[in-house]
């Protein structure tokens, strides 16, 4: 079975370490906040200028001046700080964020990522995604392995305009967890019940299948 959105978030959350500063993109990455393992403390960075994003507010505590990068009303947790956009991106571009999780349309074997622009469709903008992928050392891309029509999104070369070049090393799809090394995807883990053959069939870029591939458990 392909992973659900919640399972994808759970799997990403296993990469969290005590003391990490983490930026979570919109969509599945946002759900990772719900699965922070017990006993570890992480600080969530929101690029509009909040380090230490807390839970959503209640009706009583809602505040128009307190939002996250998805423009949702939020709260600040204990230990939070608030600052300008320039300061926020100094953290991101300066490599101070320990883990960045974001979605994508395509990734390729060279670590290129395309996530913001589909030619012929209206382009809304890249927001902070180009800064995040260029500035971070440790990035996990979350995406479906193939499109609804079965077209692979793990390619030899991205077909869409890039968000960043040569910056992605880890990809979690609904079918597998893979790393990008030396011009190839390396299969590390399979989703429960998903066969290696299915992953091979749905991966267009060069794929290496080591002997020690493990099946994820939830």
């Amino acid at each position: 079975m392909a992973l659900s959105r919640e399972q994808m978030a759970q799997r990403v959350a296993r990469e969290l370490q005590d003391g990490f500063y983490v930026n979570l993109g919109i969509g599945i990455p946002t759900l990772v906040a719900n699965y922070v393992p017990d006993g570890i403390d992480v600080m969530l960075q929101s690029e509009n200028g909040l380090l230490g994003m807390g839970a959503f507010p209640t009706e009583e505590t809602i505040d128009a001046d307190m939002i996250n990068a998805g423009k949702q009303t939020v709260t600040a947790r204990k230990g939070a700080s608030i600052f300008s956009s320039a300061e926020s991106f100094a953290m991101i571009r300066g490599g101070h964020v320990d883990l960045t999780v974001l979605g994508a349309f395509e990734v390729d074997v060279e670590g290129n990522i395309a996530s913001w622009m589909i030619p012929g469709k209206l382009v809304k903008g890249m927001g902070g995604a180009m800064d995040l992928v260029a500035g971070a050392e440790n990035i996990i891309v979350t995406m479906t392995h193939a499109s609804k029509d079965g077209e692979s999104k793990l390619l030899s070369r991205c077909s869409l305009p890039l968000t960043g070049a040569g910056c992605i090393k880890k990809v979690l799809t609904d079918l597998a967890y893979l790393e990008i090394e030396n011009g190839a995807f390396v299969l590390r883990e399979t989703a429960p019940g998903v066969t290696v053959d299915e992953i091979i069939a749905k991966t267009a870029g060069k794929l290496i299948v080591p002997d020690d591939v493990v099946e994820m458990t939830f």
Partner: peptide, 11 residues
């Protein structure tokens, strides 16, 4: 001060 994405949790 209009709110764009009003999101709340249950109290």
């Amino acid at each position: 001060k209009r709110i764009e994405q009003r999101t709340v949790r249950k109290a």
